[in-house]
Design a binder for these strands. Structure first.
Length: 137
DNA sequence: ATTCTTACA
DNA sequence: TGTAAGTA
């Protein structure tokens, strides 16, 4: 897929990404600290985001709104990919299947957390009220 | 005018 | 997460 180079091309500064994703600079930088995104930098250390970065941020935003925290997002989302192994992405169906699974995985995580009581060392993957899980129709 | 990092609320 | 401070 030759379009990958274009999708991974660092183009816009954080200001534009804020408007595009409706996320605060604080949030965007926070997600970067947790390696959910790895935007490029200019020679002046300014962040430059690509279309892929924006897409990832939108996915992250969606999961956050569903009540999933960083730990959960790391498990559901594909690890940050780069030009290095575009070969692995050759399977067009692979990426789609991952997206399909993400939803059922989220469901399992929710159910798992409901059934098993929090183990002393285990970290909660879900934050806030699980009400959303039940109010779901 | 924008963004960056650090740190405190 | 928001925001203030001091830079680049």
């Amino acid at each position: 897929m030759g379009d990958d180079i274009r999708r991974n091309m660092a183009l816009f500064p954080i200001g534009i990404v804020m408007k595009l994703t409706d996320l605060s600079a604080r949030q965007i930088r926070y997600y970067e600290q947790h390696s959910l995104i790895v935007p490029a930098r200019t020679s002046g250390n300014q962040r430059l985001f690509s279309f892929n970065d924006v897409e990832r941020l939108l996915e992250i935003k969606a999961l956050i709104e569903k009540g999933v925290n960083i730990a959960g997002i790391k498990q559901v989302m594909n690890p940050v990919t780069k030009e290095s192994e575009e070969a692995t992405v050759l399977n067009a169906a692979t990426e789609e299947k991952r997206k399909e699974l993400s939803d059922s995985q989220l469901h399992r995580m929710l159910k798992q957390q409901l059934v098993s009581g929090k183990k002393p060392g285990q970290v909660s993957l879900i934050q806030g009220e699980l009400s959303r899980f039940f109010n779901r129709k």
